[in-house]
Design a protein around this nucleic acid. Structure first.
Lengths: 188, 188
DNA sequence: GTATATCTAATCAAATTTGAATACCAGAGG
DNA sequence: CCTCTGGTATTCAAATTTGATTAGATATAC
């Protein structure tokens, strides 16, 4: 699963009503040179797809009429809301750093406890992955690339680093850092 | 650029003559649960494309006739050899860990000095990336996801880790570790 | 000896992504 | 007022990737 749908739904949700170009500039402004190399084409495709699936519906808030050619504006439907949550939850347990990142970006849309639970699951998955990677045989004069010590090393490092990062976030979230949607309802 | 072409060319080069399924099992056996989630379809597509571009040509070494349905076998052409080198060099300077990994897997097909040069370039690019990421503003109560400290943190960590890994490999390669194609010609 | 699982090998339609192109509008400079 | 530049907004064809399916051959188990 790529992150485009999640990014698009999240971006629209944050704004209430949005359109392709706004989603695009949102997303690219969030870029860190590294993650999210999402191209405009993918976004418009995702929008069409999401609309045809009833996840978003087009609205026309004539409010924002200004600048340049006309836009198609969208809002999230109920179904789209559920889809967003589903995608978000699966991103937050992902071992893939791109997905995990997007999950972190939107984790505050979940109840804090739920986010904690998912991050813990993620931790466990990462541990398993480390264990697996460390079990791979290596060879200083590898017959095939898979046995190259540096190659295995890269991935052990990568996953260990991600595990540490996840752990740190988990600790912060558990300690009450950052504002979660749920905090507003119960706390205060 | 994805890594499929590089992986396919590299796999065929290592074997001399190969076919789709062999490339596929090669690649998946090299998997580390993490990288290279390359599906069969992509490989066969890449093979067709590479053949139509004259990078590989089909041969039939009736030598390996055994087991299961019949295969289409391929060998690398001169043009394909150059393409392989080009892809390999660009992978070795990539900041993307998937690409860098594949680059490491095949770096021994370059002269040692060339690999060192490319890894140094990669190091520099990573430093620049770290510098950029660290310059991004963050906010404990972020208005948009890009300012989330954890999100920026993930990427700083990720790139720093990759820089450290690259440095380590560089040191090893400079110290004469691993066998490079070029070593056989000059050394000994 | 015969069903059945498993490994080998490839294909294909559908979905997605890429990259380039198009078009609209506003402001700046001559 | 006219043209050029740059930001806004979307579209589209072509390329690639995905996921499921097909299918041959061999081994296994009954």
């Amino acid at each position: 699963m790529s992150t485009v749908r999640l990014l698009v739904l999240g971006s629209i949700l944050r704004k209430g009503i949005s359109h392709g170009y706004a989603v695009f500039s949102d997303i690219t402004s969030w870029r860190a040179d590294t993650w999210t190399n999402v191209k405009p084409g993918s976004i418009y495709h995702a929008l069409d797809k999401l609309e045809s699936q009833g996840m978003i519906r087009s609205v026309n808030s004539e409010i924002n009429v200004k600048l340049g050619p006309s836009r198609k504006e969208y809002a999230i439907t109920q179904k789209g809301g559920s889809e967003f949550i589903a995608l978000l939850e699966s991103a937050l347990v992902s071992v893939d750093i791109q997905q995990l990142s997007v999950g972190i970006a939107f984790m505050d849309m979940l109840p804090r406890q739920r986010a904690i639970g998912l991050l813990q699951q993620c931790r466990i998955a990462l541990e398993r992955s480390i264990h697996f990677l460390k079990s791979l045989p290596t060879d200083e004069r590898p017959t095939d690339p898979s046995k190259h010590p540096e190659l295995v090393g890269i991935w052990v490092n990568y996953v260990e680093n991600e595990a540490a990062t996840t752990e740190r976030i988990l600790v912060n979230v558990q300690a009450g850092k950052y504002e979660f949607k749920s905090d507003l309802l119960e706390g205060e």
